[in-house]
Computed example of a mutant assay.
Amino acid sequence: MRKEKNGMKFIDFRSDTVTFPTQEMRNAMLNAKVGDDVYGDDPTVLELEKLSAKILGKEAALFVSSGTMGNLLSIWTHTNRGEEIITGWHNHIIVHEQAGLAQICQVMPRTICHDNDFIYPEDIEKSIRPNDIHEPKTTLLEIENALSNGLVVPLDIMEANYKMAKKYKLNVHLDGARIFNAAESLKCDVKDIAQYADSVMFCLSKGLCAPYGSMIVGTREFIEKARRHRKMIGGGTRQAGMMAACGLVALKKMTKRVKEDHANAKYLAKELSKIDGVQIDLNKVQISMVFFKFDKKKINYSTFDKQCSKHSILMNPATDGEYRVVTHYWVDKKDCDLLVKCILASKKVK
């Protein structure tokens, strides 16, 4: 499904953040009832926050500009300066959020490293600092689901991690940017995932087509403290209802079709696995992400990039020889077939 931008049509596999808002979202934005969110009287924002809390099974919610802001506010609200948090070495807060936890929250991360980027209960227990005046105090476990590598953490592991954290009186924050993808993969309700965290951040603009925004949910006390922090860093907005209106469409409509993105990702992965020279693990295609590499002796990376350009396909460059493709609302099966065609055209002739 080709999108049009600046008069040019293209297929965008770079991420699920590139989705343009649907026509229904544009109409909702146009007709949104608005107020001043800093005063707390924007009716559409209030509706979005109420619905978000209900869907995730929490007391309250806060509308923020991005997932990065949501994670920052959550960590800041859960911790005090000089404390330490436990997290994964590839988690978004470590790799992609400019060390905000150090610059603003002023806390130190203690990272856990596994090949699959999972965190297990024994990792948590080993990482918790003893009651020693020479060492920082451990106060928070920060986890992700789904993971940025496309894998989904099973509920039994989440439960075990939560119980271990509570054994040592740690709070738990979940970066659930793609929590609806995780729930679809696990065939469960998002509440079943969110129950194993004290706070959850999820994105409206990743795979759900909203042009703006993320939500954080938790207790009323937690959200009110986070709201004060949001204002401090310039996150207070005025007539935010126009953007919140898109979020409502995202929650009510777009979450119901995530399975279509997963189906297209699995279809693409299966077709790629048939190509001699493509290296792919089908077991790792659990959400809308497909990772693959080429055998350099059989497929030319440079030719593939040129083929994508020829057919107006946008792809992120390969990282250490590995490509990531993400399916979403604006990508259909025909687009996946075209990508496969580009790879076949890039095979080296013996």
Rank of each mutant, 00 (worst) to 15 (best):
M1P: 12
M1L: 13
R2E: 02
E4I: 15
E4F: 12
M8S: 14
F10T: 09
I11M: 13
I11D: 01
D12C: 10
T22P: 08
M25Y: 05
R26N: 15
A32F: 04
A32W: 00
V38Q: 09
V38I: 13
D41N: 15
D41R: 07
D42S: 00
P43G: 14
L46V: 12
L51Q: 01
S52E: 12
A53T: 10
I55R: 05
G57Q: 03
K58P: 04
E59N: 06
E59S: 00
A60W: 08
A60C: 11
F63C: 05
F63H: 03
V64A: 03
M69D: 02
M69Y: 11
G70D: 02
N71P: 02
T79M: 12
N91Q: 14
I93H: 07
Q98E: 11
A99W: 03
G100V: 10
A102N: 14
A102H: 15
Q106A: 14
Q106F: 14
V107E: 10
M108C: 10
P109I: 10
C113R: 11
H114Y: 13
D117I: 11
F118L: 05
P121D: 10
K126H: 10
S127N: 05
R129I: 05
R129P: 02
N131A: 15
N131Q: 15
I133C: 09
E135Y: 15
T139C: 05
L141F: 01
S148D: 10
G150N: 00
P154D: 07
P154Y: 07
L155Y: 04
M158W: 02
A160H: 07
A160V: 06
N161P: 02
N161E: 04
A165Q: 08
Y168D: 09
I179D: 00
F180G: 06
A183I: 02
S185T: 01
D189Q: 02
A194N: 06
D198Q: 00
L204D: 03
A210M: 04
P211K: 05
Y212E: 03
I216F: 04
I216P: 00
G218C: 12
T219C: 09
E221V: 07
E221Y: 07
F222A: 06
E224Q: 10
E224K: 09
K225P: 00
H229T: 03
T237R: 14
T237F: 15
L251K: 02
K252V: 12
T255A: 09
K259G: 15
E260H: 13
E260L: 13
D261H: 08
H262P: 00
N264F: 06
L268C: 11
E271M: 08
L272W: 01
K274M: 11
K274A: 11
G277N: 07
V278D: 03
K284R: 14
F304M: 08
F304A: 05
Q307W: 11
S309Y: 09
K310T: 14
S312R: 12
L314M: 12
M315T: 11
N316H: 15
D320W: 09
G321T: 11
E322H: 04
H328C: 13
V331S: 05
K333L: 01
K341V: 04
A345P: 01
S346R: 07
S346D: 07
K347G: 02
